[in-house]
Design a protein around this nucleic acid. Sequence first.
DNA 1: CTGTTAGCGCTTTCAT
DNA 2: ATGAAAGCGCTAACAG
Lengths: 355, 355
Amino acid sequence: MAGVGKATAARTLGNYGAVSPEARARVVAAAQMLGYRPNNLARSMATGITRTIGVIVADISNPFFAGVVRGIADACDVMDYSMIVLSTDEMLSKEQAALGVLMDKQVDAIILASAAHVPRETAHIQEAMNRRIPVVLVDRRIRGRDLGAVVIDNRDAARDAVRQLIGVGHRRIAFAWGPEFHDGPLERAPLLALAAEQLWSQGERLFGYIDALDEAGIGFDPLLVSHCPNNEEATVGMARAMLSLPEPPTALLTTETDAMVGALRAIKECGLSYPDDISVIGFDDSSWASVMDPPLTMIAQPMLKLGWAAAQHALTTIAQDDDEALVQIIPSRLISRGSVAPPRASIGMDADGER
Amino acid sequence: MAGVGKATAARTLGNYGAVSPEARARVVAAAQMLGYRPNNLARSMATGITRTIGVIVADISNPFFAGVVRGIADACDVMDYSMIVLSTDEMLSKEQAALGVLMDKQVDAIILASAAHVPRETAHIQEAMNRRIPVVLVDRRIRGRDLGAVVIDNRDAARDAVRQLIGVGHRRIAFAWGPEFHDGPLERAPLLALAAEQLWSQGERLFGYIDALDEAGIGFDPLLVSHCPNNEEATVGMARAMLSLPEPPTALLTTETDAMVGALRAIKECGLSYPDDISVIGFDDSSWASVMDPPLTMIAQPMLKLGWAAAQHALTTIAQDDDEALVQIIPSRLISRGSVAPPRASIGMDADGER
DNA sequence: CTGTTAGCGCTTTCAT
DNA sequence: ATGAAAGCGCTAACAG
């Protein structure tokens, strides 16, 4: 219709090669008229580039990952990429399947919050890399596997939070995290061993907790470390159990929002209140935390930044095809609000607050 | 390598046509050895089917949309589809661009939480449909445009909530929603007109509010309807302004989480407390709402179901290529907790609850 | 059941 | 600067 050869049309429409102004004008006009839209599929097939990246997270409906994904999306938007998102529910099998899907869709790179804990669970990642698809981890590294990643310093963050607690006088500090131990409370050594085989972020947080205890010379008490089940009821039960100990904790650090919500409910159900009876700090800030009464001291993770940086990392890796497994650490921030107070020096006040 | 023709290999690998067991076995073995993976791009190019759907929402990091997207992802997972997600930040221009991207990527269908308010803003949607790409709306319809959609009954939900408030004796009920009016408070008629040109869900909620007022014979007061700005400070200011009215509201319905958070903060800053001084109900439940003290009465939207149903709708439309613009209404649920109480004026009770 | 032969819509040499 | 032609990896008719 523009009276030019197929190649010339392709050149102007595809925006490559050299075309004379007149020819270009005619082609553009014709394309306009015809409502032409390039077929990206065909282009990708010819070039081997899809301008699409794959994102695999535990659960896109989790506010943390939703934030990370938004960060990735923002970077994609700027760089003119699209994003396919898949959730694993923390299941390795789903993660493997997801990677397969992404490889089959020929994505240019993959951003992965892996459910893998240890190197032997990473064959699928290796396969993607063998196919020359850049993989960058986000939120979690994999212990013993040297992969590019964008994370926060979880150990540091947890250590800081516990220091804060210790700083105002606490010595019995509880820790509610994700990993589960079937054989009841674990002594220090086996617990550390367990942590080293768990999700990296969770393990790091335990290490940070113990670091702070150690540096303050506070003895480790197995009873003060609990698993926070996914189920709401059970989470409340976990918190109640700790609060009902003969020598209950005076402070609590939670590594997940669910654990915090469960703990708050347990505190209320036990007729206690924070921070008077127990101080609390949790991972992952939310707008709600600031309207709680009193407002919650929280460790805020820069979700958007994590995602943004991971995407940048992935996209530049595509461009320059380098193999450096560099790890980027984004700072997290402890937001002090009202849920931390000195422990009751002396036991001798009564309970209040029922509904 | 399997000693068969290209077509036979393709047939077994592509899983179509008929292949003899022996041939199939040899091909499978060879593929296995070679680590063969189908190139979906090529397949899509040949068939015109990508097994990918596009999803456009206002903001994937918003917990509501994150939930909807998860619902879509679940359906996709089952049906063996992938999902490309794009955010518009409620900007029509971004939505238009997003639709363009998806069309160029040849997605098989599009699920859209549109930022369009009125028919004249829907040309881009029409274009996608002209290209025979099924579009199904989620969360919001577009007034005056008959498109397939999966939504909740916002009007009903708001009406119910306000009825609840009226039921326990409230007559001065405030309403904090999204739309903005530059010329100060609006009388009933202009407000209704405005609502009809706003985001469908927001408009419906206002209509529901007014419905309930009307049926109880409560007069409409322009001062009790406020815009909730995106900015936290400003939202608090909005709530404070209403609380400082000569005749302040005794109850408040918020249509967004932000508005609720802002309102709660304003209530506290004004030295008031809920539900004693003011009852509150908000749209969008969250795990936090149940640990507030007292816990918040909320309208829970079934986010996963919305997404799931929208995806089902889209995928079946692909399959049968029908044009029925059917609208599916998913029930929402008012979860009564402790933030609603009779207004203090009507019964003689005294104040309590400071800290 | 199997092999042959065309494309799908684009990019990319390679001549001209 | 432009056109002709090959080919990306697959599916889809069509013969055999």
